[in-house]
């Protein structure tokens, strides 16, 4: 990110280029600059976006400070009271504990489970997006800058992969990894395998966008000038071209986060994701699904609502960011 800041004049994020120089001296000015920007204006005048941002922020805070916020520690077997199992929402269990969202079959507090589950979901989503972004941006830069057969090979692979649904690709990679990792390590490795599976299924978007922008940028004067004075291609790519594509990458990444969270939930719901000992929102929904027929709706509904709220908020934020950063829509 250091690279992108030093080149901030070219970045689409900075709408008021004239003030950029001043802000580097005074932090107060920088804050002022943010509140004075077009982006802040468009943000603060869209109530839905503000609401989405607040909800997303709350989820992030809850996930980070889970041990402080959650009333119970749901995944320490020793702390559970089985006799409180299936306590309905807003009721007291037999042990005298109170449960806002009720408890599941093992007497786990559903509210605490959601907080800890969101932590896993966000962690997996975040890391998967980061992984997909690094991979996709790098390959896109190389493909766009080098062109020729390198471009053809990378983009044909991307096309082939794009013809399969992402979840299928993730399932395939997950299955392969499971077959290769010895059984004893599977439980511990599951989360990393999940991150890599989702990441690998999602890099194409980044590669395509970055490649397109790179092909345009590489013929601009500043790139040619850099080339003339003998800057190495890698430096040109990462110091000069990359900052110009970051805007659109950021938009894809935000929407990608919502998709990755949903992909993780889907995999976990199918029972191939994170193990029940460290459940994510998807795992919680799967566990609760077994009790829908018998009327214990709260075990699955609350994690379901949490997942919808999280994915929807992040998605709306991504949508807004895309519009705000698109100069044609201004």
């Amino acid at each position: 990110m250091g690279a992108s800041q030093s080149n901030s004049q070219q970045g689409p994020l900075n709408s008021r280029q004239g003030q950029a120089g001043a802000s580097e001296e005074a932090p107060h000015g920088r804050l002022h600059r943010i509140f004075d920007s077009d982006i802040w204006h468009s943000f603060s005048h869209s109530p839905i976006t503000v609401l989405s941002a607040i909800i997303t922020l709350l989820f992030f805070l809850a996930a980070i400070f889970a041990p402080l916020i959650a009333p119970y520690t749901p995944f320490q077997a020793g702390s559970l009271h089985l006799m409180d199992g299936f306590t309905p929402p807003f009721e007291q269990g037999m042990s005298g504990n109170f449960y806002v969202f009720g408890t599941d079959d093992q007497g786990r507090d559903v509210f605490s489970a959601i907080i800890y589950g969101a932590r896993i979901s966000l962690l997996v989503g975040f890391c998967a997006v980061l992984f997909a972004m690094v991979l996709g941006v790098t390959l896109g830069l190389i493909a766009g800058y080098r062109g020729g057969w390198v471009d053809t090979v990378i983009m044909r692979i991307a096309d082939v992969q794009l013809s399969f649904p992402a979840i299928l690709v993730a399932l395939l990679i997950f299955g392969l990894a499971k077959a290769m990792i010895p059984r004893d390590y599977q439980e511990n490795m599951a989360i990393y395998v999940l991150i890599i599976s989702i990441g690998l299924s999602d890099w194409v978007q980044y590669a395509r966008t970055v490649r397109g922008t790179t092909m345009v940028e590489k013929n601009r004067e500043y790139v040619q000038a850099a080339r003339v004075i003998g800057v190495r291609p890698a430096v040109i790519l990462f110091r000069h071209v990359l900052p110009n594509v970051m805007g659109s990458v950021l938009v894809i990444a935000t929407i990608g986060l919502a998709l990755a969270i949903i992909a993780e939930a889907t995999l976990s719901f199918l029972g191939v994701g994170v193990p029940p000992t460290t459940p994510s929102l998807g795992t919680l929904i799967r566990i609760g699904n077994d009790f829908l027929f018998s009327g214990e709706w709260w075990i699955t509904i609350f994690p379901g609502i949490a997942l919808i709220m999280l994915a929807l908020s992040v998605n709306l934020l991504g949508d807004w960011l895309r519009d705000a950063l698109n100069p044609k829509l201004r």
Partner: peptide, 16 residues
């Protein structure tokens, strides 16, 4: 899982 919880309460930590 229930057994793991019950044993956990007396100090025997169970990995399931």
């Amino acid at each position: 899982q229930a057994v793991a919880g019950m044993l956990g309460q007396v100090g025997v930590t169970v990995d399931l």
